[in-house]
């Protein structure tokens, strides 16, 4: 599904050159679940943006089903994002003026889905995250957990191949965190998605079958035999967010 070959990303910060990614090689199969951890500024979010086609590498290739996202023109890259990749952000990134239902519908707009079908699919997606009755509410009328559920529904409504989550529980309290993690794991299991999540939360990281750690732009991958499998996906999240995970 994904193959990253020698991906580098360099930024300029004033006169200083920052190597956000320094030759990352990574392979992900369809249905894989990867959690990325690492210190702040280590390159976690940059790697996620490369996977999501939100940014282009300075060098290297980002292959998604054999297509090099790095080489695609902007228009086609936008289409790939619209069709295949669902995003969940730490700050939910909902449009504040649109209702939950309309926010979910925004993901179907680029696909040219007709309004009636858009509405029914958005309602269905909201039902699947347990917010069927809150579809007419504005984000400001929903709790943080509910807003993140709307964001998850928005990510999944287009039936993507990939779900990319950047600190999805970062702005939630512990009980909300558990709810969202369980929801994401359930959906991963249900839809057979390739699921990549960036998190600082070690308790969540421990549940992942593969752990990637990025430090100074370099990645190390570790298999986790104790991880939650699709069969154990609904188990409660152990530990707390402060527990470190060794890469």
């Amino acid at each position: 599904m994904y193959e990253l070959i020698g991906v580098t990303k360099q930024y300029r910060r004033g006169q200083e050159r920052v190597d956000a990614l320094a030759g990352v090689d990574l392979t992900l199969a369809q249905g894989d679940r990867l959690v990325i951890q690492g210190p702040t500024g280590g390159g976690k979010s940059t790697l996620l943006q490369m996977l999501g086609g939100l940014d282009r590498p300075t060098s290297g290739r980002v292959l998604l089903d054999g297509t090099d996202l790095a080489a695609l023109p902007e228009r086609k890259l936008t289409a790939v994002r619209g069709q295949n990749i669902g995003f969940v952000f730490q700050s939910f990134n909902l449009i504040p003026t649109l209702t939950a239902q309309e926010n979910v519908e925004t993901a179907l707009v680029p696909l040219g889905v007709k309004p009636a079908e858009r509405r029914s699919r958005a309602a269905e997606a909201l039902e699947s995250v347990g917010l069927g009755e809150r579809s007419g509410h504005l984000p400001s009328e929903l709790s943080g957990g509910q807003q993140q559920r709307v964001a998850i529904a928005r990510a999944l409504v287009k039936r993507p191949k990939v779900l990319l989550a950047d600190e999805p529980t970062g702005n939630l309290d512990e009980s909300m965190r558990d709810e969202i993690v369980e929801l994401l794991e359930g959906l991963w299991k249900e839809h057979g998605l390739t699921f990549v999540m960036v998190t600082h939360d070690s308790a969540i990281a421990r549940r992942a079958p593969r752990l990637a750690t990025i430090r100074k732009g370099r990645i190390t991958i570790k298999e986790n035999p104790r991880a939650a499998t699709p069969d154990r996906a609904s188990a409660p999240v152990p530990g707390t967010a402060s527990d470190p995970v060794e890469a």
């Binding site: 999501g52 936008t78 994002r81 995003f87 700050s91 990134n93 449009i95 925004t106 680029p110």
Partner: peptide, 16 residues
């Protein structure tokens, strides 16, 4: 900015 960035991430073209 975040709003428009999100929409673009969702696949909205610049023209839209």
């Amino acid at each position: 900015v975040r709003e428009f960035g999100t929409l673009k991430a969702l696949g909205w073209k610049s023209g839209r």
